[in-house]
C-alpha cells in the first residue's frame, strides 16, 4: 500500500518535473524581459513572441510547409541511401573498410560550409536543400543500422544456418529485425537534424521556407518574429521526433508486451 503510493507519487513527480522546469524557465524569461533587466530590442518578452506568432501564423505555416517538405524528402532519401549502404557494408567486408573512414570524414565537414557550395552547384531550387538534409541525416541512420546488423547474435545466426538457411534468410530473420531498435534511435537523431539542416540551407538562398523567413526578419531586426520562428522550428522538430517514436512502437510490438 505504502509502496504503491510512493510509486504513484514518483510517477507524478516524473511527469511534473519537466513541466515545472519549463514553467520556471518561461517565468524567468517573462520576468527578465518585462522587468526591463534586458532591453526589449535584445530579448523580446514572451508575450510579444506569442503575439508575433499569432499575427504571422498563416505566413509561418506556409513557410513551415516548405521546410517540412524539404526535411521529409531529405530524410526519406537519406534513410533509403543509408539502408542500401549499411546492407552492402555489412555484406562485403572490403566495402566496410573502404567506406567507413569516408563516412566519418563527411561528418566532420560542417553543414554550414557546404551549403553555399550546394547552392552554387544546384541553384536556388529545392534540390540543394534536400541534398543537404540527405547529407546530414544519412550518417546517423547508416551507422546505427550497420551497428545493428553487426551486433547480431552469432548463436542466432548459427541457428538459422543449422536449419539450412541462406545468407539472405539470416539477414531477413535475424539481422534486419535485430537492427530495428538501433535504426530508430538513428532515425530519431536524423529527424531532428533534418529540420535544422533544411533551415540552414535556406539561409543561404531561396524564396520560401522558415530559413528564408528567418533571414528576412533578422534584417528587419524583428526579434519577436525571430523568436517565434525559432520556437516553431523546435516544435516541428519535436513533432517529427514524436512521429518517429510512434513508428517505433508500431514496428516493435514485442517491446510493448514485455514488462
Amino acid at each position: 500500500m505504502c509502496l504503491q503510493l510512493t510509486r504513484r507519487l514518483q510517477s507524478i513527480t516524473n511527469k511534473a518535473a519537466p513541466v515545472i522546469s519549463l514553467a520556471v524557465l518561461a517565468a524567468l524569461w517573462l520576468f527578465v524581459s518585462e522587468g526591463g533587466i534586458v532591453p526589449a530590442y535584445m530579448l523580446p518578452s514572451p508575450v510579444e513572441v506569442v503575439k508575433a506568432f499569432v499575427n504571422d501564423f498563416d505566413i509561418l505555416c506556409s513557410h513551415a510547409a516548405v521546410t517540412m517538405q524539404e526535411a521529409v524528402y531529405g530524410l526519406l532519401i537519406g534513410t533509403a541511401l543509408a539502408f542500401v549502404i549499411a546492407v552492402l557494408m555489412d555484406r562485403f567486408a572490403f566495402l566496410h573498410k573502404a567506406l567507413y573512414p569516408i563516412l566519418v570524414i563527411t561528418q566532420t565537414i560542417p553543414t554550414i560550409a557546404i551549403a553555399p557550395l550546394l547552392v552554387l552547384w544546384m541553384g536556388f531550387s529545392m534540390a540543394p536543400k534536400i541534398t543537404l538534409v540527405v547529407l546530414t541525416t544519412f550518417f546517423p541512420i547508416a551507422i546505427s543500422l550497420l551497428d545493428g546488423f553487426q551486433s547480431a547474435d552469432i548463436d542466432e545466426i548459427n541457428l538459422i544456418r543449422s536449419m539450412g538457411g541462406t545468407r539472405a534468410q539470416i539477414f531477413l530473420h535475424v539481422k534486419l529485425p535485430g537492427a530495428v531498435e538501433q535504426f530508430f534511435s538513428g532515425l530519431k537523431v536524423s529527424a531532428s537534424y533534418s529540420i535544422v539542416g533544411a533551415v540552414i540551407s535556406e539561409w543561404l538562398g531561396g524564396f520560401e521556407g522558415l530559413g528564408v523567413y528567418m533571414t528576412r526578419v533578422k534584417k528587419a531586426y524583428a526579434f519577436d518574429k525571430m523568436f517565434a520562428v525559432i520556437i516553431l522550428i523546435s516544435v516541428v522538430s519535436l513533432l517529427l521526433m514524436a512521429l518517429v517514436a510512434l513508428l517505433k512502437r508500431t514496428a516493435m510490438p514485442y517491446k510493448r508486451s514485455r514488462q
Binding site: S162, V174, Y254
Partner: peptide
C-alpha cells in the same frame, strides 16, 4: 552440410521479434 540435423542450445534462441 548444414540444415540436416537440428540443433538446440542452452540459450533458447527464440527470436524476440517473432
Amino acid at each position: 552440410k548444414a540444415g540436416k540435423i537440428s540443433y538446440m542450445l542452452q540459450k533458447d534462441l527464440l527470436l524476440p521479434h517473432y
